[in-house]
Design a protein around this nucleic acid. Structure first.
Length: 552
RNA sequence: GGCCCCGUGGUCAAGCGGUUAAGACACCGCCCUUUCACGGCGGAGUCAUGGGUUCGAUUCCCGUCGGGGUCACCA
C-alpha cells in the first residue's frame, strides 16, 4: 500500500491533473503581456482598497496588452452573502473597470479559463490535492479543531512558535496504512500540505513593489483542503493562478508574509510561480495612529459611498492613480486634456508604505474633473445621480434647456469655474436660479458694506428702471453699473475709492454686492452678468421687489 | 512576543552620496477691471533619532524609537 492508494481512497473520482493542464493551456499573448486579476471574496462589501488594487491590476494589464480578470473567492461558506458577486461586478462597472474575463453577473462569466468562481472549482482543487497526496507531499490530518487549539496553547506556554509543523505535526508521520484504516473507519479529516521547508533557512524574494525581502522558509503544514472539501486561500491561489495563467499577482500587502508558503506550494505542485506585487493599503489617521480604512468606522471605506456622494468616477480613479504613482499628478498638469489611460503607469514605482486617505484632495480633483465638463455633461451626470439619490434635484432638472443655461454659466471658457466637486453639491449650487426654490423659503439678505436701506432701495430701483437692459453686452452692462454708482455718490472705480476714501460712501464693488444679494440672496455667486442674462429683466425685477419688501 | 515591511513639510510625495531638498492638496499674503471660484505671483512648513562609513550623508550600515502587517479548517 502506498501514497497512490491513499490518494485514490480519498479522492476516488478526481481527474488526473494532466486533464486540467491541457484544458487551460498557456495563453497566447504578445511578448510582455501581463495577466492580472482581481480576486475578492463576495462579502457584499467592496472596499475602496479593493477598487484600488483592481485599478492597478487593470492598468498594468491594459498597458501591456494583457488580460485583467475577475475571480470570486467564495471558499468560505460562512461568509457567503446573497448577491455578493453582483455587488462586485456592479462596482467595477460603475467605475468603468469591467474585467476582460471572469464573472460578469452573479452567475454568468466570460473567458476560457473558468469557472471563475472558486466554489465551482472544487473538483479541480481536489485533483491537485490528490496529486500531492500521491506524491507524498500532502496527507490527511485527523486532528480535530479542538486538538489544534490544545497544541497552540501548549506552544504558547512553552513559548515556541505556534502552528502545525515539525514535532507538533502529529499526523504528518502517520503511516499510509494507519491513515487508510482511519478513513475507512469514517474518521473525519482534512488535507494538509507536507512542507519540505526549514525555519532556519532563509529564502530570498523580490517583490515588484516591496523590493528584496528575506524570509525564513515556510515549515508549516498548512491545511489545503478543509473539512467541507473546499480549498483554503493558499491552495486555491496556487492552483487558480497557475491554471488561469496569471503572470502577476497584485494583491494587498497583508499577504506578503505568506509568500514563502505560496512559493513553496507553487514549487511542490510543479508550477511556475507568478511575480508578486504587494500593495500597501490605504490608511486613515485615527487619533494620531494610522490604520486601515475600516468598513465599520469609515463610510468612505465603501466604494458605494462615492457613488452615493456623487463624486465623479474619474475623480476617484485619478485620485487612486495618484496614490499609486505620484508622478501622475505632474503628468496630469502637463497633459490636462488627455485620458488617464495614456498615463504610463509603473507598478514598480508604487509607494512602499501606506498612504493616508485624503478626502480634501479627492474633492479638489472632483472640482477639476467637473470644471472640464461641458454643460451637457454636467447635466447628464447630475441627472443620473439625481434619479437615484435626489428627487428634488431631479425635478429641477426636468427643464433641460433651462438647466443647460444654468450649467453653462462660466463654463466652456479658458478659465472654467471650479465650484462643484461632486454631484450632491449641484442642488445647492444652482438652487437660487430656480424661482420656485428661491421664493419658497425666507431668504436672508445680508447686504455688506452698504447698510442704508434707502440707498439700497434706490440702487435697486434705479438700476432696473434706468440702467438694466437684457440686450447689453458685458462691457456696456459693466459700464452702466459704474454709472449707477457714480449717480448714487459712490466711487466708480475701486482704486479711486482707495486713493480717496473720504470722498465716497463706498465704491462700485459695494454697489454690485447690493445687486448680487438682492438678486440671489447670496454673497458668493458666479458671474453676475451671466446670471442676469439667464434670469432676464422680468425675473430680475421681481427679485428686486422681493428684496425691497424684505427691507421693511 | 516571533517573523516581515515602512519612517522626507498637516497630507500625497520626487529624490538613489555633493540639490537653494521638486511638484500637488491644504494654509497665509498680494494681484487678477466688482463678490466667490479660477488663474498668476510670493510665503510659512520636512529628511524620526543616536551612532558609524565617507572629504561629504535625506541618500549606505547598525542600534533606538515610532507606525503597519502577519502568525486560522477567514480570505
Amino acid at each position: 500500500m502506498d501514497y497512490k492508494d491513499l490518494a485514490n481512497l480519498i479522492f476516488p473520482d478526481a481527474k488526473d491533473i494532466s486533464y486540467y493542464e491541457e484544458k487551460y493551456p498557456e495563453r497566447n499573448l504578445p511578448e510582455g503581456a501581463i495577466v492580472t486579476r482581481f480576486a475578492p471574496s463576495p462579502t457584499g462589501f467592496v472596499h475602496i482598497g479593493g477598487l484600488y488594487q483592481a485599478l492597478v491590476a487593470r492598468e498594468v494589464a491594459k498597458k501591456t496588452g494583457g488580460v485583467f480578470f475577475l475571480r470570486v473567492e467564495d471558499t468560505d461558506q460562512k461568509r457567503e452573502v446573497e448577491n455578493g458577486v453582483t455587488g462586485i461586478v456592479n462596482s467595477l462597472k460603475d467605475f468603468d473597470m469591467a474585467p476582460d474575463e471572469g464573472m460578469i453577473t452573479d452567475t454568468e462569466e466570460i473567458g476560457n479559463y473558468g469557472p471563475y468562481k472558486q466554489s465551482l472549482r472544487k473538483e479541480i482543487y481536489q485533483a491537485y490535492a490528490k496529486y500531492l497526496i500521491s506524491q507524498g507531499k500532502a496527507y490527511p490530518c485527523f486532528c480535530t479543531p479542538e486538538e489544534g487549539e490544545e497544541i497552540r496553547k501548549k506552544q504558547e506556554a512553552a513559548k515556541v512558535r505556534t502552528g502545525y509543523y515539525g514535532v507538533w505535526a502529529k499526523c504528518r508521520n502517520i503511516t499510509v496504512e494507519e491513515a487508510y484504516k482511519k478513513i475507512e473507519n469514517g474518521e473525519s479529516y482534512i488535507i494538509r500540505f507536507k512542507s519540505p521547508g526549514r525555519e532556519d533557512r532563509k529564502i530570498k524574494h523580490k517583490d515588484i513593489i516591496k523590493g528584496n525581502v528575506d524570509f525564513p522558509e515556510n515549515d508549516q503544514d498548512i491545511v489545503i483542503i478543509k473539512a467541507d472539501g473546499l480549498p483554503t486561500y493558499h491552495f486555491a491561489h496556487a492552483v487558480d493562478d497557475h491554471l488561469m495563467r496569471t503572470t502577476h499577482v497584485i494583491r494587498s500587502d497583508e499577504w506578503l508574509s505568506s509568500v514563502p508558503l505560496h512559493l513553496q506550494l507553487f514549487h511542490e505542485l510543479g508550477f511556475k510561480a507568478p511575480k508578486y506585487a504587494h500593495i500597501s493599503p490605504i490608511m486613515k489617521n485615527d487619533n494620531g495612529n494610522k490604520r486601515k480604512l475600516s468598513k465599520r468606522k469609515d463610510p468612505e471605506a465603501a466604494v458605494s459611498y462615492y457613488k452615493e456622494e456623487g463624486i465623479p468616477v474619474n475623480a476617484v480613479k485619478e485620485y487612486l492613480l495618484n496614490i499609486a504613482n505620484s508622478t501622475f499628478e505632474n503628468w496630469r498638469r502637463a497633459n490636462p486634456d488627455k485620458s488617464m489611460d495614456e498615463f504610463d503607469f509603473q507598478l514598480n514605482k508604487m509607494s512602499v508604505s501606506g498612504a493616508l486617505f485624503d478626502m480634501v484632495k479627492l474633492l479638489d480633483i472632483g472640482k477639476t474633473v467637473i470644471s472640464k465638463m461641458t454643460a451637457e455633461e454636467v447635466y447628464e451626470n447630475s441627472l443620473k445621480w439625481a434619479e437615484e439619490y435626489d428627487k428634488e434635484l431631479l425635478e429641477m432638472l426636468q427643464d433641460k434647456e433651462y438647466a443647460l443655461r444654468v450649467f453653462g454659466i462660466e463654463r466652456g471658457n479658458k478659465k472654467p469655474r471650479k465650484d462643484i466637486s461632486k454631484w450632491s453639491e449641484v442642488k445647492y449650487n444652482i438652487e437660487y436660479m430656480y424661482d420656485d426654490k428661491f421664493y419658497s423659503k425666507e431668504q436672508e439678505y445680508q447686504y455688506q458694506v452698504i447698510a442704508d436701506k434707502e440707498d439700497i432701495e434706490k440702487i435697486l430701483n434705479l438700476y432696473i428702471e434706468k440702467y438694466y437692459n437684457d440686450n447689453d453686452d458685458k462691457q456696456t452692462w459693466f459700464d452702466k453699473i459704474k454709472e449707477l454708482a457714480g449717480e448714487m455718490g459712490y466711487a466708480k472705480e475701486v482704486k479711486e475709492f482707495k486713493a480717496n476714501p473720504g470722498m465716497y460712501k463706498a465704491h462700485v464693488g459695494d454697489v454690485s454686492t447690493v445687486l448680487r444679494i438682492a438678486l440671489t440672496a447670496r454673497a458668493n455667486t458666479p458671474d453676475m452678468y451671466e446670471i442676469m442674462q439667464v434670469l432676464g429683466k422680468d425675473r430680475i425685477q421681481k427679485r428686486f421687489e422681493t428684496a425691497i419688501k424684505n427691507l421693511k
